[in-house]
Every structure is written in C-alpha cells, then in structure tokens.
Design a binder for these strands. Structure first.
Lengths: 168, 168
DNA sequence: AGGAAATACTTTAAGCTTAAAGTAATTCCA
DNA sequence: TGGAATTACTTTAAGCTTAAAGTATTTCCT
C-alpha cells in the first residue's frame, strides 16, 4: 500500500509485477518466522519437560537477574515487548511460587517494585545454563564463524523495522 | 547439556567459560526473536485494524490458496507447524464465516477435506496484497540487495536446527 | 485548592497455543 | 474374522496474548 503510494510506478503494473515487488520481503519474513517457530517450540518443550516452566516466566526472571535491586514493574512490558496486562498474571504466579517479590513503592503508591528472591536467582541460574546449552545444541551445525555476521544482519534488520515503525 | 556431554572439555571450565561457549548462539536467538516479535506484532495489529482478521486465520487461507482442490485437514498442522487441536476452532470459525468448506471424505470417514470458497479466495487475495505491501514497507530500509543473502543464511539456519532436532 | 489529565497497574473478553486425553473409523494381522 | 494398533480429528485444561475498559494515585495547571 504505502509502497505503491510512495513510489508510484511509471507505467501501470499488473498483479504479478506488484507481487514481484515485495516477494523478497515476504520470503524473508517467512524464513524468519519459520526459524523462530522451530527454535521456540523446542525451547518451550524443554522448559516444560525439564523445569515445568514457561518461556514468558523465564523471560521475566532474565530481566530481573540483571537488576539486583529490582525493577519497577512498568519496566517489564517495555523490555519484554509485551502488553502490561499480559504481565499481571505472570508476575502474580512468580510471586506465589516464591521466585520474586512485589513491593509497593513508598514514594508513589501506584508503583510496584519487583525483585528476584534468592531462590528465584538460584532457579534462574540453573535454567539459564540449560537454556544456553540447548541453543548451542540446536545451532551447533550452523558454522560458528558466521554467527556474528548473521547477528549483525539481524541487528540491522531490527533497526530498519524500528525506523519504519517510527515513521508510520 | 548435550554439548558438554558430547565434547567434554580437556580441562574443567568455570561458569564464565561455559557461558562464553554459547553466548553467540544465545545472542543470535535473541535477535531472531526480537525481529520476529517486532514484525509479528505490527502485522497482527494491521490485520486486526484493516481486516478484523488474525494471522493464524490468514495462514490457513494462505495454505488453501495454493490448493484449488482443497487439502486434507490433517495436512494443515504439518504445514503450519502447529498442533492439530489448535486448528479445530480456527477452522470451525473460518467455516462459520464462509471462507472455507469442510467436507467429510467419502473414502475414509475420519478424514475431512477443507477447501477455500470463492468468497474466501477473494478475501484472501485482498489481504495477501496488503500483507505483502506491509512487509515491503516494514523492511523498506533494509538494503534490497542483501535480502537474498539473509534469506539464504536463514534457510541454512533452519536446516541446521532441523538436523539438530532430528538427532535429539 | 481543586478539577482535569496523565500514569501505573488490573480486569475482562476474545482468541491463540499446547499437551494430554478422548472418540470414531480404519488397518493390520494372527 | 475379530481384536489390537493406528490414524484422524476433537475436547479439555492451563497458560499466553492482546485491546479496551476500569481503578487508584499522582501531577499539572488554573
């Protein structure tokens, strides 16, 4: 839509030509999605089988692991790129299960501080180690010397998409 | 885990060394996930706003678009890499809404054939066109001449992961 | 001061997702 | 032939996810 609008073709194009215009981008998207789905499914399966845990819960712990003094609850949706409402029940359960604490701020009664417990940190370290080795296993056949190159490309891709989103 | 088992280090390693061993793979995974999440969120938002539709529904139609004579229902979970139970309510609703038909096979009463309707095909074409141009827009800043290279890398990555999964 | 706007978070409704268990039909094979 | 195993699909329970609406608190501004 925006493409056709922003750079109108000199001559009218038929459906096939238009399709050809964005085939590369569509193919890239499908590959990206396939890779992510494949890896995510396997990671989820292993988290469940080995630790009876879910990835969203792990992701929350991973954020808190980097913040010894805890984090304002509202930071989590931003960092994890999920909605705020999403986190409420996930944090609820992590508190229930003793992995984290949720403390109302004394300065602003709307704000809550979440912080990993000692047990939470221990559990996270254990799971993080497995998580890393699972990834190393799953990606073992991909040439290690090309990892950084691919990471760089994906970084650029992410930047491009962010820029495009800013504009729209 | 498997890495440590399959190629035991000559000398014992401390935690930091172990972590370094798979940091590249972890970073790659996080980039991959970030790119996918970013794009997927935007596509979902646009599907909802423009067409009041969801991506899983679109994915089903995309599969059926390539099969003029329909598809055995059981093929969908395989192609879309989702569970069978997942598709039941999605297909239910696509049938309800008139996008597809679901016909019991006369040869095997366990089997159902799903097939796009004329209206479904029309709706799909319209959405697919937008889908493509959205992707072109979102990826517009990424150098077009490097698309194929990245696609190739992701293809290889996918193959590597598939191989690793086969082994495990 | 005191009302409007903004902020932080929760709740709700709808839909996606999976694993596991369940149902019905078919095939396999002894 | 007739029971066991397999296959195709559905159902269920639990959890993730979002958008939108709701609540409580704070800030901003007149």
């Amino acid at each position: 839509m925006a493409v056709a609008k922003e750079s109108p073709p000199v001559s009218p194009r038929n459906g096939a030509d238009q399709e050809a215009e964005y085939r590369g981008q569509t193919r890239l998207w499908l590959r990206l999605l396939a890779c992510t789905t494949l890896i995510e499914g396997e990671l989820r399966r292993r988290f469940r089988e080995e630790f009876d845990f879910t990835m969203p819960r792990f992701d929350v712990l991973a954020q808190l692991d980097r913040e010894p003094s805890g984090l304002v609850l509202g930071e989590l949706p931003k960092r994890l790129m999920v909605s705020a409402g999403n986190l409420t029940p996930i944090v609820d359960r992590l508190v229930e299960d003793g992995y984290i604490t949720r403390t109302p701020s004394t300065l602003d009664r709307r704000v809550q501080i979440v912080c990993m417990t000692v047990e939470g940190r221990k559990a996270f370290r254990r799971m993080a180690k497995s998580h890393g080795s699972w990834l190393a296993e799953l990606l073992a056949e991909f040439p290690a010397e090309r990892l950084d190159g691919l990471i760089g490309e994906l970084d650029e891709l992410k930047g491009s998409v962010r820029d495009a989103l800013q504009k729209s």
